[in-house]
Amino acid sequence: MNRFDYIRPASLEEALAAGARPGAAYLAGGTNLLDLMKVGVAAPALLVDVTRLPGLDAIEETAEGDLRIGAMVRNSDIARAPEIKALFPMLAEALLSGASAQLRNAATAGGNVLQRPRAALLDGMRGDDRDLAVLGWTDACACVHPSDFAVALAALDARLEIAGAAGLRAVPLADFLSLPEGAAEAVPALAAGELLTAVVLPAAAARVAGHARYVKLRERTSFAFALVSVAAALEMEGGRIRSARLALGGVAHKPWRTPAAEAALAGAAPGPEVFARAAALALEGAAPSGDNAFKIELARRLVARALALAAAGTPARVPALPASPLDADHGAPAYV
């Protein structure tokens, strides 16, 4: 690890000023940054510890009725928060399917969304072929965004609240990461020194609480990144799907929303045919980027499975194996 300076500013203003210095990096839980520093992929000259900044460690309702998760709230605390379990249970399931209890205790909301691709830790930016993207990739980069949380957030139309020298701004999470031609990894829409201060969930997204699931396939039962994952949420009305939200993880450099599939579901009665049609649309344009053609069919099947599980209803408590499509006992639905 390179030598660096360390500071722990007491106010947001101080943090923003320090964060704008050349070579500075914000340190939250450190579970991703330290990992990258240990292998020499990241070598910041200055670590700006933002974990004790005031006002970033609470989950609270905004004046507009949205739910604001401070950037420093730990992943385990988000997953256990009563308002998350009641309004956005898919977030709890996604978080609890990620990493380990120890890591979730340290990892923050902001750090999770901003974590860099796992491929960055391996050889160059390619990593293991099996893990690579099948959607939206370029010749320069086929790495996938590693976060489970971000996939569920994208499906729920979450916004990111960002502080900079000019004040606060908001960016939809789905637009936050881009992959310019020639870039070796996805680029977050953050200017130098900008600090992510919160993740905001629109009140309207709580309408899918009764039919929302995060489903994740991995190489082992627990404590593994997603090979493919799906966040599926349905707004049901009189036995039909009024609107649908669908995002895929493990397939692209960012959480992959699927407008065409969502449109095909709207107004339909839930059932295997419409789910299969939506799954085909969700993977439209998919192409292998390495030894990973299997992921396309796997993702299709997982979309259909996730939609079926969502239609059956959100279980009253997160299943014993969160997000596992192999968990036989999904429990009784919470909302009927």
């Binding site: 360390y6 722990r8 340190l27 839980g29 450190g30 579970t31 330290l34 990992d35 240990k38 670590l47 510890d49 974990t51 385990s76 990493a99 380990s100 209890a101 120890q102 890591l103 205790n105 340290a106």
Partner: peptide, 28 residues
């Protein structure tokens, strides 16, 4: 030494964490 195995688990302020992924300087 990378957060992957749990051998370094300790309890910090009542919570279990990986000591290998935590900088001592942050723990004042």
């Amino acid at each position: 030494d990378r957060g992957q195995c749990g051998a370094c688990t300790v309890i910090v302020d009542g919570r279990r964490v990986n000591a290998c992924m935590s900088l001592a300087v942050t723990l004042d």
